[in-house]
Design a binder for these strands. Structure first.
Lengths: 89, 89
DNA sequence: TAAAAATGTAAAATATACTTGACATTTTGG
DNA sequence: CCAAAATGTCAAGTATATTTTACATTTTTA
């Protein structure tokens, strides 16, 4: 199965690693557009208000399941809500 | 700012919570289509082989940043790679 | 302006994602 | 068939996400 070409491909792609990805998101903006408080959004997503605060502020990332719930709630894709900058950290 | 309608909306939407989301993904399939080993994919994503194994098997979810790297690597959206079933857990 | 609602902050505890290392089993190729 | 490569498993440790509680500040509204 494996041949030389495969290894070349992998090496060529090694810079896809952790060095990238600074994450911002449009949650506060989307939440306010719906006229919701942090507490109401938290309830709708089944997380605490602290989690909404931390994610809106960028203190940490949402987990993938939570990101999905957020995307479904706002009717947009994960990629359109979370912005992955191609910069350090 | 807040009015009665808003509260109605929130109550109406409370079932978007954790009860959903059982997660599978197409990573093994996509990796094999590229003729890569788990170890090579792990290297390309800057994670360990254990992480690739666990995510392929569904032992746990990728974090959002890792899900994003995976999506970029395979040239697809997060939503098309990770499948969120609307079932329990 | 004063009360109420919304937002922010901080620390300790728990859950989950990820790493490291070591070894077992399966699959592949000579 | 045998060796090497690939995949799987297990356990302990670190990192990060989420919860809980409690209080401080800002914004809204009566």
């Amino acid at each position: 199965m494996g041949d030389g070409v495969i290894i070349e491909n992998v090496k060529h792609v090694l810079h896809f690693g952790k060095e990238a990805v600074k994450l911002k998101n449009r949650i506060r903006e989307l939440r306010r557009a719906m006229g919701l408080t942090q507490d109401e959004l938290a309830g709708a997503l089944s997380v605490t208000r602290q989690t909404v605060i931390a994610i809106e502020k960028g203190t940490y990332c949402a987990s993938l399941p939570l990101a999905h719930r957020i995307a479904v709630f706002f009717g947009e894709s994960i990629e359109s809500i979370f912005i992955f900058d191609e910069e350090d950290q």
